[in-house]
Design a protein around this nucleic acid. Structure first.
Lengths: 214, 214, 214, 214
DNA sequence: CATGAATGAGAATTCATTCAT
DNA sequence: AATGAATGAATTCTCATTCAT
């Protein structure tokens, strides 16, 4: 392991603290509230200083979004019990994705923003890298589905497409909640979503074991 | 029928042309590109003139969004054959929704933006009216599902929730295409979505009649 | 007497109604609220039409101010009983001036504005004509004072200067009231002013007859 | 005494120079000529920079007005010889007030503007603080009058009201001069005003000592 | 005569970015 | 490395004035 020089430590510290400030602002007041001024203030430094660590605002935002995205993936992955069966894994994944988005507003906001940004063809290149996180997440879902199909726990299907749909439904549900359009407890929304998915994946109602979809 | 005076005609023409300019900008470059200056230029008039037809930017945006939303609903509804069976209606609805969003970028962008706007609690009241279009659309889907359940074409289910999921999946699919993540023809994406939905709604693969989901 | 043609009648009617609207706005909300739009709306016509009767906004304002000023003078003069003694006339004049300014906010506002306008040397020429009303008013006061001096009711003094001071004090008093800095009834403020003036003019406390300074 | 850092010095310098620019514009062309653009140009900086020192235009104006008002009070107070008698103090006060207003056009303009602003009930709260300067000035005059009454140099009177009148007359006189309606030297106008006041305050012509009202 | 649509010249304010210290 | 003063371009909105109809 390489010892970090003082410079690197500082660099790291500043970078982190600026990114955290950015995320805090996004979570609290949305993207429009992110100004260099505010980020700096929140990080306890000055505007000019940010530019020592980020080329410009776009780069800062990109970095923040990447951090948020990767964190979400890490968090969701970490909640999947590798010893569970395929359906159990699907349940854990959906639930933990919902919970993560519920807990960290900036995560959901970011997912939506990323989509938004990618819809503008002129800007697409700039933000393309963010897609990788999405792809990684979709692959993870697909892997679970593939495993289920292999084990005959799930019916045969185009698992890539199904993974996409599952992700969409999870995000849609979280969004509905954020818009204040669902007053049910998160757990209930999660269970309804899983019940909706079950016949598609399993071809029948799965046997619910404790801890699966609560 | 009342003959319109020249004044009313002009008023109408301007209002329309400003709204169209707005929509064109939204479709081409997204919402952040909408400035009064640009809208005016696009409409071939001057900034000040816009204010003769819209109180301020918020009103302009709101009017544009409402127009887009109502247009989508009208267009989708118009494509549903009232004589078709429930599953046929679902197919028509999903397909025509996909097509509409594909054809009018501003429609999809608007749907996303509306969600975006509604995510900011401080602004929610301002844009709340836009939700009504969404609600109306969801009700329409629900009505079809209810009819299907009554006719035993569909299995019993929470039709309100199912309507929500169907809508989410349609939007998600359109969005994937807009992001350039699907290179399949629209028709194919539509069919895959319907095939995904079929087991849930019908409990089995439906018999596909010609013209239903192509 | 010349019969007025229809045109002249219309011209007169429009001019009056526009001026009245202007005054109403001044009285209600002050000068900053005077926009051509508002004046037109208040007069029941359109912006463009105003320009048929007034070259531009300055001319409109000037005309309105003149009307207001002349009206005040007429009103104040009308209240002076030509058979009263000099001190009685001073009392009537001061009181009726206070009352007029109290009743018509636009009058006082106008007096202040006129002063304001005349303080800007570049604009002075434009508004100079308004001074004539002031001068006429001062002359009237001076005439009363001169009469009093001739009749030995008042001590000898520079009546021109005294007239100026009396006018200043009346305006200052009205202004204090408008600023909400005096909660006494108007009559009381008037009497105090007169009591302040008495020793200067009369060299002693005058004998107050009924109806003089109330 | 604390040494100021370079930053504080600059901050102070800019604040001053912006305020001075504002005052210069007020003095030269009146309040309507005060635009952020013009102030900035006058101060040799850019619009945006002003906002580093003043939250917005209202704050800038308020600060300028306060500065002007307090400066006038300071200047007038400083000219009163505490060893002079009551009448002498009145003379000094009136004369130095006239001189100050004569020298600094913006002072007189400000006094008038303050009145103007306070006449609009909707804006009154915003500018109320400015009244305190006026009140302080009136109190000063009243104190002198009270002292004179106590010493039997002045006759008994409502000194609060008298203070108000004296102030009004001083302002009125200064204004007359600013409007170009008096061609006499300032000193002469001052003396006439004092002669007008004398019988009221003293009940007789005071003995003029050298240096009192010249 | 009268309209009222349209203009265009500002006005206030915000903010990403730069740069001398 | 860090500052934070300064910039300047952009943006929303207002209003007196003009002019074709």
């Amino acid at each position: 392991m390489t010892a970090l020089t003082g410079k690197q430590v500082l660099r790291d510290f500043r970078t982190r603290s600026v990114l955290e400030s950015t995320r805090r602002i996004i979570a609290a007041q949305g993207f429009d509230a992110v100004t260099m001024e505010r980020v700096a203030a929140e990080a306890g430094i000055t505007k000019g200083c940010i530019y020592l660590y980020f080329r410009n605002k776009d780069h800062l935002i990109l970095a923040a979004l990447e951090e948020i995205a990767s964190e979400m993936i890490r968090e969701v992955e970490g909640r999947i019990d590798s010893k569970a069966g395929p359906w159990g894994k699907v349940c854990q994944l959906v639930i933990s994705q919902l919970e993560t988005m519920e807990r960290h507003k900036d995560v959901l906001r970011t997912i939506l923003l990323i989509r938004w940004l990618l819809n503008d063809p002129r800007e697409r290149k700039k933000w393309r890298r963010l897609l990788e996180y999405r792809q990684r997440h979709l692959k993870r879902i697909k892997a679970i589905l593939d495993e289920g199909v292999r084990q005959k726990a799930f019916r045969r299907m185009d698992t890539g497409v199904a993974a996409f749909y599952i992700n969409e439904l999870a995000i849609g549900t979280a969004q509905k909640r954020m818009m204040g359009l669902s007053h049910a407890p998160l757990e209930r929304d999660g269970r309804m979503l899983l019940r909706f998915l079950a016949p598609i994946l399993c071809g029948r109602m799965p046997i619910w074991k404790s801890g699966e979809g609560k």
